[in-house]
């Protein structure tokens, strides 16, 4: 299972980088989203993929043993990373909208006004 997810992460990174290298700003932004999710999956994978019980120890008699318990920390981390990713996604789309309103273009090659002439 780990191998499948690892290959999947690799594919996501590859497509993300492909999108980053396109000329259109929309595709660039989509590339950022794809890479962001691939990174979240890396954190997810770092905890190990096991078919196991709940990841906390309750007061009930049915206490999870260390062997059957999943690591709860990556799940908490990934949640944080997803929330941050969501905030950034909202901001970056708003920025793109404003940029399109101001300049009427979404061609990355037009982003040369701030470079040295």
């Amino acid at each position: 299972m780990e191998l499948v997810i690892a290959i999947f992460i690799g594919l996501l990174y590859a497509s993300g980088v492909y999108l980053l290298l396109r000329r259109s700003i929309v595709k660039l932004i989509l590339g950022v989203f794809v890479i962001s999710n691939a990174t979240n999956l890396i954190i997810f994978l770092s905890g190990g993929i096991t078919r196991s019980g709940v990841s906390f120890i309750g007061d009930e008699a049915e206490k999870a043993s260390l062997e059957t318990m999943t690591d709860p920390l990556p799940q908490a981390l990934i949640l944080t990373a997803i929330v941050i990713g969501l905030g950034i996604a909202a901001y970056i789309l708003a920025l793109k909208y404003k940029y399109f309103e101001t300049t009427g273009t979404h061609d990355l090659d037009q982003l040369s006004k701030t470079d040295q002439k």
Partner: peptide, 10 residues
């Protein structure tokens, strides 16, 4: 950075 953290934690 965060991918590095994920691998390091693993």
């Amino acid at each position: 950075f965060v991918a590095g953290i994920g691998l390091l934690y693993g």
